[in-house]
Simulated scan of single mutants.
Amino acid sequence: MSGVQTRKVKADEEGMRLDRWFKAHFPQVRHGELEKYLRKGQVRVAGGRVKANRRLETGEEIRIPPLSNAPTEKKPRQPNKTDAEAVRRLIIFEDDEIMALNKPFGLAVQGGSKTKEHLDGMLAALEKNGERPRLVHRLDKDTGGLMIVAKTRQAAQRLGDAFKGHDVEKTYWALVAGAPRPYEGTIDMPIAKKMVRIGEGEEERVIPAEGEDAKKAITDYQIIEEAGTVSFLAMRPVTGRTHQLRVHAAAIGCPIIGDGKYGGPSAKIEGVSPQLHLFCRSMTFPHPKTGRNMTLSAPLQGHMLETWKFFCFGKNAKVEWPEDLHS
Rank of each mutant, 00 (worst) to 15 (best):
M1D: 13
M1K: 08
G3P: 15
G3S: 10
R7L: 06
K10H: 10
G15R: 05
R17M: 02
R17P: 03
L18P: 02
W21A: 03
F22V: 11
Q28P: 01
R30I: 01
H31Y: 13
E35A: 09
R44H: 11
A52G: 01
N53D: 14
T58A: 13
E61H: 07
P66K: 02
S68P: 15
N69T: 05
K74I: 13
K75S: 13
Q78H: 10
P79G: 07
D83I: 01
E85N: 09
I92A: 05
F93C: 07
D95N: 10
E97R: 06
E97P: 01
E97Y: 14
A100W: 03
F105W: 05
G106Y: 13
L107I: 13
V109L: 08
G111N: 00
S113V: 04
T115L: 06
K116N: 14
D120Q: 11
D120H: 12
L123K: 02
L126W: 12
K128A: 12
E131L: 05
P133Q: 07
R134S: 06
H137T: 06
T143Q: 05
T143I: 07
M147G: 08
Q154E: 15
G165R: 02
K170Q: 07
W173I: 06
V176Y: 14
G178W: 08
A179P: 06
P180I: 09
G185F: 07
I191K: 00
K194T: 05
K194H: 08
I198P: 02
E210N: 02
E210Q: 07
D213I: 10
A214R: 00
K216L: 14
I218W: 03
Y221P: 00
I224E: 09
A227S: 15
T229S: 15
V230C: 13
A234R: 04
T239H: 04
A250G: 13
I256T: 11
I257F: 04
G258Y: 06
G264T: 09
P265Q: 14
A267H: 14
G271V: 12
F279H: 15
F279R: 10
R281P: 03
P288H: 06
K289Y: 07
N293D: 14
M294L: 09
P299S: 08
E306S: 15
W308C: 15
F310T: 13
F313Q: 09
G314H: 14
K315M: 09
N316E: 15
